[in-house]
Nucleic acid binder design. Structure first.
Length: 273
DNA sequence: AAAGGTTGCAACCGCTGGTCT
DNA sequence: CAGACCAGCGGTTGCAACCTT
């Protein structure tokens, strides 16, 4: 450290990350977490700045990230949320588990914006129609994915306005298929990452950060296994999430036990266990 | 096959707001 | 209260891969 508190100037690398750098960063954060991003590169032996490490971790290395193309449901969510939130990519990303704000932003600029511009007048009409018809559709039990997507999004938007509460984030809502009773027994599947972060203290899957030193000794295999489980979970479709929230959990189940046993997740054949 | 254009994505930059001293 | 520091966010850039001519 210099007199002014600056760290000694070290030649910092820029540009694409090498597999070796990725491995170093991943290993370091998995075993130590990141108390302060500016110290991470120093302690991990990387010639990068903390900001770069943080970005690399969040956008590429952290567990639970979904890779690959966006589903139609995800596209719809982005379009709908963008119409109400604007370019609030981080907020939009909160509703798409496994997707990063950067990924969503890139997808918007490269593809969705064009689609949106093309279909905007049509989209407005659709949304207004959907809004009008949602309550009647739901009351007669008819499945309409678009209507339910919108309803879902509206519910989540309200949720986002609430003060953060990891244990029980859901507001009381009536006549809404996506919001269950606010008693921690029924929750929509989209909140899995938040549940895991609260029920599994050593890894916060919303950021992928190891937070509890008691678990530092966890092996790479164990972590990889959890990562795979998380990824598998992320690939459940929005329809699964929205239409089956009443099925996938029974009252009185212990989420932490579900998580640790693996029973919590969906089988490959998409049946719930 | 080669050159030029386009696209997609990773990473950087600058700004903002929160926290600490 | 002011300044320093940091994390997070959104806009922008750079570049490799792909496509078109």
């Amino acid at each position: 450290m210099t007199k002014s508190g600056e760290r000694p100037k070290q030649r910092q690398r820029k540009g694409l990350w090498s597999p070796e750098e990725d491995q170093k960063l991943k290993n370091f954060i998995i075993s130590h977490g990141h108390a302060c991003w500016t110290t991470v590169p120093l302690l991990a032996g990387l010639q990068r700045n903390g900001k770069s490490c943080r970005l690399r971790w969040i956008n590429y290395l952290r567990p639970g990230l979904k890779r690959g193309t966006f589903s139609e449901e995800e596209e719809d969510i982005i379009l709908t949320l963008h119409s109400s939130l604007g370019n609030k990519w981080s907020r939009i990303a909160k509703y798409l588990p496994g997707r990063t704000d950067n990924e969503i932003k890139n997808y918007w600029h490269s593809y969705l914006k064009k689609r949106w511009l093309k279909s905007q007048p049509q989209l407005k009409t659709q949304i207004s129609d959907i809004t009008e018809s949602t309550s009647s559709l739901l009351s007669c039990g008819k499945r309409n994915l678009e209507a339910e997507t919108l309803n879902h999004v509206i519910s989540f938007e309200k949720l986002a306005e609430l003060p953060s509460s990891s244990s029980s984030p859901l507001p009381q809502q009536e006549n809404n298929t996506n919001m269950m009773m606010n008693n921690d027994k029924y929750l929509p599947k989209l909140f899995f990452s938040e549940w895991i972060s609260s029920s599994n203290p050593h890894i916060d899957y919303s950021t992928g950060v190891v937070t509890d030193s008691k678990h530092v000794s966890q092996t790479q295999d164990q972590i990889d296994e959890e990562e795979v489980m998380m990824i598998n979970n992320s690939y459940s479709s929005l329809e699964d999430v929205m239409l089956r929230t009443d099925q996938f959990l029974q009252p009185d189940h212990d989420y932490a036990n579900y998580y640790s046993s693996g029973d919590f997740f969906i089988n490959n054949d998409q049946s719930y266990v």
